[in-house]
Amino acid sequence: MIYPTQPPLTKGRRKSMVTLNDYGQYETAWCPGCGNFQLLKAVKQALVASNLEPHQVLFVSGIGQAAKAPHYLNANFFNGLHGRSLPAATGAKLANPNLKVIAESGDGCNYGEGGNHFISAIRRNIDITVIVHDNQVYGLTKGQASPTSEHGFTTKAQPSGYPSETFNPIGIAVAMHASFVARGFTGMTDHLAEIIRQAIAHKGFSLVDVLQPCVTFNKTNTFAWYKKRCYELPKDHDPANWDAAMKTAYEWGEKIPLGLIYKCDKPTFEDNFEVLKSGSLVGADTPIETLNEIIKQYR
């Protein structure tokens, strides 16, 4: 019996460059005009720009309209439980650090159901990229408030207005010194693709919070609403400056900054494990001598 062995992940290994065709074209279950279309396009562009082949990438997602996105491109894909994409992605990355692991899901999945995992993944600085489709509303369950909904936002579930304050994922991530924190907007696809490319290239936890309209259920934060407010961070914004990043993280309202808000280099979670330095955990049998050595302690 021959078991497959993994080729090392090296850039430009393939003679011909990866193209958009490698990632395919699929019919989706999304509403016409949904921000997801532009986000999917940006993700594909970023993968191509990273020259990653589909089999080198593992998408992990939760549940929601956003979580379906990886179904619509060619790559390895584990579509798990609502809110649990980050633990599953963490496990997969630890099992095989050679995989480029990208967790993609919505604001409800990552910031609501999976809030504890979001915080813990930042603390670990696990080398995965998290792309959050942030449309400030629950789409799949037809229009309830999400953690990022604005205070007072009315829905059928919150007829008197959303009573909580808005969750600020960028603020939390920067406050915790997450190693890569960025925001994009689906109305600026090329800019978004470039941010995602940088996030994928970054070694450590990278967050890309993506503002996008929900054309069906969010009549407040519409395409025009975002378009009017979103602006690219000026060239002199220094993502290494934490104080400036904190200030930027809380800029929201008339002006919403886009781009790489904060970045720092620090050891990744995987760096803590000696065993991962020599590759993946897959197929690495522990020698019987080692096992016998361990059993000896019970003599």
């Binding site: 584990f78 599953a88 997969a92 099992a95 995992h117 915080i119 991962l276």
Partner: peptide, 24 residues
């Protein structure tokens, strides 16, 4: 091997399933 004390049991088992899917 990798041993991780997770943030909760939900994370623990989802991590383990993710790791298993990837081959550990």
């Amino acid at each position: 091997l990798v041993v991780e004390q997770a943030e909760d049991e939900i994370a623990a088992i989802n991590m383990a399933i993710g790791a298993s899917f990837a081959g550990a």
